[in-house]
Each structure stands twice: as structure tokens, then as C-alpha cells.
């Protein structure tokens, strides 16, 4: 981060430090729910009713009663007493909004890829995107009530993930659970950075 403090004092406000984390995953996996569980603001979003026009585009099999989807920017905010503001950005769930991803990804600490064990393949696109762009990510398995439970190791095999990528089981509705997911991501990014530094020193 590149802070320039010179006219902040005269403006009567300190310059907040800002950071962002992306929340990604397949359609209907609970990204908006996760953001809402921990954000201090109601997530800014446009949930459009799913119409029969989106049949074949928005696959709702296994998603039950989902009748709306996020079509615009979906973000939440957490401000801390240290003048830090952390933003959570949900990536658009539908592939036709992929053009927005690069914009959302620039300067992000990392990403949470939400997965649903009933539709594991839905998060492949997110994983591909972050691997290709060198963006660190963790997998958060959203444990839906009706979904079968699997061990993280089985999920790792199903997603063909390298051993270092953390896999966390979570409930996207629960604030404490979401907090654990975000903490595991930030720890992972910090460890990655210090490992990289050690390699460059050695």
C-alpha cells in the first residue's frame, strides 16, 4: 500500500487503510449470505428474480428455493478501530459477468472459494481463475443442512488441490464461522509471503 499522508491531517481525517477479500464460488452457493453474516452494512446488491429466461443459464438443481441471483456488485464492509476498513466483494455468480472479475481482483488480499458438496464442480471456474492469476485462496465448504458431509481430504482430492491450500468447513450464515474462514485465509497469505521472502533471501 502506498500511503500519502501529507494533506490528510489538514482535511481533518486520517487516511483509512483499506483491504479487500473476494468471495467466490458457484451460483447459489451462499456468497451473499456469507458477506451479509459478517458485514456491518447490508450488502449492496441487486438480486434479480430468476425468470424462465435464465433456465439453462442458471442451474438451480440442488439449490432448492433460490429465486433471485446477484447481478450487480455485491459488497460488505467491516471497519476496525485501527482505521482499517476491510471490504468483502462477492464475485458475480454467473459466467456472463466474468468481465468484472479482473477489476474486483486487483489489490485483493486473497479469495474465499465457497463450495457446496452437492455441486462441487461449480467452483472449478473460480479455482481456475485464482490459480491462473496467482491469487491465494482458501476453500470454504458451506455445510448446507441437506448436503452430504465429506472429510476435507476427500474434498481436496475431488478438487485436485495442492496440499497447502486450506480447506475449511463453514456455515455461511454464522458470523463466527465466517470469521474463522477469513482468519484462515489471511494466515495462509501471510505464511505464503514469509515463505517467499525466505526463498528470496536464501
Amino acid at each position: 500500500m502506498d500511503l500519502n499522508h501529507f494533506d490528510a491531517a489538514s482535511a481533518g481525517g486520517t487516511v483509512p487503510s483499506t483491504a479487500k477479500i473476494l468471495i467466490s464460488g458457484g451460483f447459489g452457493v451462499g456468497k451473499t449470505t456469507l458477506v451479509g453474516a459478517i458485514s456491518e452494512i447490508r450488502p449492496l446488491r441487486t438480486e434479480e428474480p430468476l425468470s424462465d429466461r435464465s433456465v439453462g443459464v442458471d442451474d438451480t438443481r440442488g439449490v432448492g428455493a433460490k429465486t433471485t441471483t446477484t447481478v450487480a456488485m455485491d459488497f460488505g464492509r467491516i471497519s476496525f478501530p485501527s482505521d482499517l476498513v476491510l471490504y468483502l466483494f462477492g464475485t458475480p455468480g454467473q459466467e456472463r459477468f466474468w468481465f468484472m472479475w479482473d477489476d474486483l481482483a486487483i489489490g485483493a488480499v486473497g479469495a474465499v472459494v465457497l463450495a457446496d458438496t452437492r455441486r462441487v464442480a461449480d467452483c472449478f471456474a473460480s479455482i481456475d481463475y485464482f490459480e491462473r492469476n496467482g491469487m491465494p485462496f482458501v476453500i470454504a465448504v458451506n455445510c448446507f443442512d441437506s448436503a452430504p458431509r465429506f472429510e476435507p481430504d476427500d474434498i481436496r482430492i475431488a478438487l485436485s488441490l495442492p496440499p497447502e491450500v486450506p480447506i475449511v468447513l463453514c456455515d455461511a450464515r454464522e458470523r463466527d464461522s465466517v470469521k474463522k474462514v477469513l482468519v484462515s485465509l489471511v494466515r495462509y497469505v501471510m505464511n505464503n509471503n514469509s515463505r517467499r521472502n525466505q526463498i528470496s533471501i536464501a
Binding site: L3, A8, T18, S82, L84, G110, K179
Partner: peptide, 27 residues
């Protein structure tokens, strides 16, 4: 208008990451 801070890719600022981690853990 001036831009006071911008974010770069990747985020390697350990001080910022530590602030995020401490903040989240104190929630």
C-alpha cells in the same frame, strides 16, 4: 481531487495483513 492510497497486486505488505488478521480475530 487526489488519490491518497492505491492497492497493488499481490498484497505483500505484512503490516497491512497483520492489521487485517488482528482485526478479524478481535471480532
Amino acid at each position: 481531487l487526489r488519490v491518497l492510497s492505491t492497492q497493488k497486486q499481490p498484497v505483500t505488505d505484512q503490516r497491512l495483513l497483520r492489521m487485517v488478521l488482528d482485526g478479524l480475530e478481535s471480532l
